[in-house]
């Protein structure tokens, strides 16, 4: 599917340029207040890292990983916070903001009267969401380096992975938003998001769960994201991380195509 969609999207002058214009529009709307929202999104994972990673970590002590290595609890929790904040940043932009723009602001109705196509709007909004997630990730990784929770080289690899995670959750969020009828429906997304945040091997290794539950946890997207980023910040990448990447790529493509199709159905009726 990716091989079908991507070449068409990246053709020079056409769709890619039009998607970029969507980002240009979002940049033009940036005002002071927006940065407060962005800053608050940055604060959350830092607070979790300090309170649970460092605070609770002091009570827990060190943790033995599956491969036998012993790491500090904060080292274990930090990459999970990074993955979740990438998810949160991308979802905030592609659920609430996207839904508001589509349903209430009627922003896309105006844009669709131009040569721009729904999939191009979806891609533009997605890249935009990813940019926000990447800002969170970069700042958080800088903090991790400062706290000696990872190395600069590993942080760089983790940043690339975070971009992928942001992209995937952004595409999923956008696809889900096209099925939402009202703001109340978003409580459901928030609940699922919070459950993912708590149980995706974030605070406790998935191996701590009963076998059946562990299997459930391991197929959730945030678990794959945490698994990938943790392997990168702690070192110890294995072939299972290739599965993480493929899994996230497939979800990304499915989400993006679904979002584009659904937008077309809703707005071009």
């Amino acid at each position: 599917m990716v091989s079908l969609v991507l070449p068409r999207l990246l053709a020079p002058g056409g769709p890619a340029r039009r998607s970029a214009t969507m980002i240009e529009r979002n940049v033009a709307t940036l005002r002071g207040a927006y940065w407060i929202v962005v800053a608050s999104g940055l604060l959350e994972p830092v607070l979790y890292l300090l309170s649970i990673g460092v605070g609770v970590g002091a009570l827990i002590g060190d943790l033995t990983l599956a491969d036998g290595r012993v790491v500090r609890y904060a080292e274990f929790v930090a990459p999970a916070m990074l993955a979740s904040s990438a998810m949160t940043g991308a979802l905030a932009e592609t659920t609430f903001n996207f839904f508001g723009k589509m349903k209430y602001q009627k922003l896309y109705d105006g844009i669709l009267a131009t040569p721009v196509r729904p999939i191009e709007i979806a891609l533009g909004e997605l890249v935009w969401a990813m940019l926000r997630g990447t800002i969170y990730a970069a700042a958080f990784l800088a903090l991790m380096i400062a706290m000696d929770l990872t190395t600069p080289a590993r942080a760089l690899a983790a940043l690339a992975a975070t971009v992928l995670v942001g992209f995937t959750f952004g595409a999923l969020g956008m696809a889900l938003s096209t099925f939402m009828k009202s703001w109340q429906d978003f409580d459901l997304i928030s609940s699922v998001q919070f459950a993912l945040f708590l149980f995706s091997g974030t605070f406790v290794p998935a191996t701590a769960y009963p076998a059946v539950l562990q299997w459930v946890v391991e197929v959730t997207p945030l678990y794959r994201a945490v698994h990938l980023i943790r392997a990168l910040t702690l070192g110890g990448v294995t072939w299972t991380n290739v599965i993480d990447v493929l899994y996230l790529l497939v979800l990304l493509a499915l989400g993006l195509v679904a979002a584009g199709r659904r937008m077309g159905k809703l707005l071009l009726s």
Partner: peptide, 23 residues
Amino acid sequence: QLDNLDAELSVRENLTTYARFFG
């Protein structure tokens, strides 16, 4: 029929940004 101007942009930006969608 119903104005769908971009409420987050200024009057001029509504025109310049829209122009960009036409390349």
